[in-house]
Write a protein that binds this DNA or RNA. Structure first.
Length: 504
DNA sequence: CGCTGCGGGAATG
DNA sequence: CATTCCCGCAGCG
């Protein structure tokens, strides 16, 4: 893609991350010189600055299923993640992946959605809530200010990606078409070619027996998901399509059809959430019929869902939860929403691959990392929205009362939030584990990818308190945010410089 | 029908 | 008291 001076001038850090600001600041950076390109799958404690012209940003779009949350602040729109809908039995689709539907945003619709059966195995569907923000759903904040749209995310999604919105919509409209043709065979059939040319990567609608209406209604999931067995789905086509779309996006970088990676974990050396950043580059094996009318438009990663699931299940489970299968996992999960884990002892299992990862051998100013003590981070994140500053008044960071200290802490905040992974106490110090136990961030032992991810930075960078940091706000900003981001990318993508593997 | 943003009001500490 | 969450409403596609 052509170098756009207005977009992501830096290959590693988002523009938003390079500036120091918080969504709650009275004053946002004025007249930003650059804007970030839109990220459909923001994950971690990240900040972006979009152009107010960016339509997706205007609509506050996200690949994640985010619902509006009233924070009684007219200027800042807050949204929280709904998680992902999966098959309660975690049945495997033909391609080995798992069902990962997009939760309906509307409460009513979501309830209805959950009553439906898994189109693949007919067992129940289950909503896996997002607890990536210290036990609470990941939150996204949007704020329009001047010519910029500020975006801030808090939390690391602890679940697979749902389908992208566009894909869900695409399938929905596809169903409509299908139903229409079902009820008006003659007429519709004759019009079909037209529709097929624009949307039909699936292209089978014509020749494929239309599902019984009753079936469609009984399991609307049909409209919302990829059953390998479903005759109306055309994988190969969409694969090609996606490759075509995605390749140009990541010149020189890892952009290979997923098929080439028989083992996702090879491509995604990271833990479960590595799927986030790795997604865009990965393509292919889409079980979904993608309905992009305009190839220039960023694919919303519908395929990714599957990659995601593959990666998630194969890689993360393989690495961390060999003893647990999806079934156990999801069954063990009760949508207790923020309450669960309180009583659970978070068991941070060894994250084998991580510490040995070559990327962790980079010469990074490690000493700064641990400073945002796990406990601090955990506590801070609990304070979902505003004024995170006070959160940083955690004892671990209390070094003085001077104004300077305050400023330092502020920087600390930003810095720590640049670390896309929450740092949990127990990972640092057994004693601090108590804090963790008291926070709602925990989940069933070992089930949370986040546990490992949380531990990783720790393992890589043993805690080390540096008193001098209180005077180094600037250093903090630069080093921490830098390191954090770099870490984030390295960490999650396993690719040192594959920055914006987000959709474009 | 579902998505979206808004805003009241309850719950929480 | 501040903050967050839940819920219903209305506009829109």
């Amino acid at each position: 893609m052509p170098a756009d001076s207005m977009q992501d001038p830096d290959p590693v850090l988002s523009y938003g991350m390079k500036l120091t600001w918080d969504i709650n600041d009275p004053q946002m950076p004025q007249e930003p010189a650059h804007f970030d390109h839109f990220r459909e799958w923001p994950d971690g404690y990240v900040r972006f600055i979009y152009s107010s012209q960016e339509k997706k940003a205007q609509r506050h779009l996200s690949g994640w299923a985010m619902r509006n949350t009233n924070n009684h602040n007219g200027h800042i729109l807050k949204k929280s993640c709904l998680g992902v809908v999966v098959c309660a039995r975690a049945c495997a689709l033909k391609d080995g992946s798992h069902l990962q539907l997009r939760p309906a945003i509307c409460d009513k619709a979501r309830l209805k959605q959950q009553k439906k059966a898994c189109p693949n195995c007919h067992s129940a569907l289950e909503l896996v809530p997002c607890r990536g923000h210290s036990g609470y759903p990941v939150t996204n904040f949007w704020r329009l200010d001047g010519n910029a749209i500020f975006f801030q995310a808090k939390g690391v999604h602890d679940h697979p990606r749902p389908e992208s919105k566009s894909e869900t919509e695409g399938r929905r409209s596809a169903l409509k078409r299908q139903m229409a043709s079902f009820y008006q065979p003659q007429k519709r059939r004759s019009e079909e070619p037209e529709a097929g040319s624009t949307q039909d990567t699936r292209g089978h609608s014509n020749s494929t027996p239309v599902p019984e209406p009753s079936e469609l209604f009984a399991m609307p999931a049909d409209t919302s998901f990829p059953i390998s067995g479903h005759s109306s789905l055309s994988f190969p086509n969409s694969d090609v399509h996606r490759v075509t779309c995605d390749l140009p996006t990541f010149p020189g970088d890892v952009i290979l059809p997923f098929q080439k990676y028989s083992n996702p974990s090879i491509y995604f050396p990271g833990p479960p959430w590595s799927y986030e950043l790795a997604s865009p580059g990965v393509t292919g094996s889409s079980p979904y019929p993608t309905l992009y009318k305009d190839p220039s438009i960023v694919p919303d990663d519908p395929d990714w869902i599957h990659l995601n699931s593959l990666q998630y299940n194969v890689s993360s489970y393989g690495s961390y939860e060999r003893s647990l299968d999806l079934t156990a996992r999801y069954h063990g999960w009760k949508p207790t929403h923020g309450k669960a884990g309180l009583e659970e002892k978070v068991d941070c299992r060894p994250c084998q691959a991580v510490p040995t990862s070559p990327y962790y051998n980079l010469e990074l100013p490690c000493r700064y990392l641990p400073v945002a003590p796990a406990g601090t981070q955990a506590l801070q994140t609990v304070i979902t929205t505003t004024v995170a500053y006070q959160a940083y008044q955690h004892p671990a960071l209390k070094h003085g009362d001077s104004v300077q200290e305050v400023s330092s802490l502020a920087s600390c905040t930003y810095a720590s939030e640049n670390l896309p992974m929450p740092i949990y106490p127990q990972a640092l110090d057994p004693q601090e584990g108590a804090i963790q136990a008291a926070s709602p961030s925990g989940r069933a032992p070992g089930i949370v990818p986040g546990d490992c991810q949380a531990a990783r930075p720790t393992l890589a960078f043993p805690q080390e308190t540096d008193p001098s940091r209180t005077a180094g706000a600037d250093v903090w900003d630069v080093c921490l945010s830098g390191v954090g981001s770099v870490m984030a990318y390295l960490d999650r993508t396993g690719q040192p410089f594959n920055l914006d593997n987000e959709d474009f």
